[in-house]
Design a protein around this nucleic acid. Sequence first.
DNA 1: GAAAAAAGTCAACATGGCTGACATAAATGT
DNA 2: ACATTTATGTCAGCCATGTTGACTTTTTTC
Lengths: 195, 195
Amino acid sequence: MADINVSQPPHANAADLDSAAAGDAAPRSQIDLIELLFFAYRNFVSDPDKVLQGYGFGRAHHRVLHFVNRHPGMRVTDLLDILRITKQSLGRVLRELVEGGFVDSRAGSSDRRQRLLHLTPKGAALARDFVAIQSQRIEKALAACSPGAREDVRRFLVAMIDAEDQAAVEKLIVRADLAAVSGGTRAGKAPARPR
Amino acid sequence: MADINVSQPPHANAADLDSAAAGDAAPRSQIDLIELLFFAYRNFVSDPDKVLQGYGFGRAHHRVLHFVNRHPGMRVTDLLDILRITKQSLGRVLRELVEGGFVDSRAGSSDRRQRLLHLTPKGAALARDFVAIQSQRIEKALAACSPGAREDVRRFLVAMIDAEDQAAVEKLIVRADLAAVSGGTRAGKAPARPR
DNA sequence: GAAAAAAGTCAACATGGCTGACATAAATGT
DNA sequence: ACATTTATGTCAGCCATGTTGACTTTTTTC
């Protein structure tokens, strides 16, 4: 934002900044967080975007690489559930990733209809790059906050998710974290999927 | 996310959840916040999306309505600086918003090359709807956090923005807040725009 | 009076969503 | 055994929203 400079009435200048409200940790407007979320998220996704350009990929590829990396051996259906896009949309980027040698798609052993998705070493390296660059931004941001901020932010983000999805998302994250800790265990057969 | 249910090895179930780390406010993985941001932001923008559908509009229209509402009398160039899109992209949605009677575009009095953008009452009502629905989600999320969370979240989001843009964004928000407080003062002539 | 700035337009293209209609292989149920 | 369901993939086309490049008009500024 080299130059955001909205037409500015002469009476409103930077000097007014801290005199807006009498209170100290003033509420400012409720709108602040809406706009900050917009600007922050835009920059947040711009990090991977730059890397992706070098591969001729887009954000959709990033998302696939990320979640396949986090859930090795996941099924196509699982990915569709997470991304909430159509089979056709996913199909396009998945094909490009497989053709480019970033993703490996193998038939399941117990259920051979399934295609279980894994990253190749090449894909895993790229996925790690994305995590590294985005983690770096997050860590830097948290460093600029009070010590307890990480937990506050985490709770805030969870609570921002639709109530009916919160449990599923938390489970998803915990499961991926556990799998990572226990040495990249590949997912076994999918258990009953309650409908 | 009715049913995120990634293929799950039998040994990783919900019971393992709290035994992941010995510590209490455990770090979990650094990846958590990356994914939470993804899911939270997706739901966050889905609120306006539903409303927009009824008007045949998209997210681009939302963004224009929002920022024109916040900065009445802003110039097209200002909007381009904020949104970081091309004149042609903006042109399309702006034309639709003007034709639909949501935005009013008047030549500037001091500089008649400029088109100063305002919302019509109809546009302002819609913009208020968007703010209301998104604020509601944010307030609900903050209510699920500790009392100091709002400031933590605010600081975190600011720090997530590219360092070179932080000051501009904060100025932009403060300026809009001040203008709103001082009774919707319309922007006067644009002052010198340092380049 | 020349140059620069603000805005707008036309044309063409890319990405990544979407719907609808089908096809195939494999598992499941009766 | 056969019918059905599930998991996956594919073709064709549409839509929203971003992009580049070229060019015009109006107005201000130097």
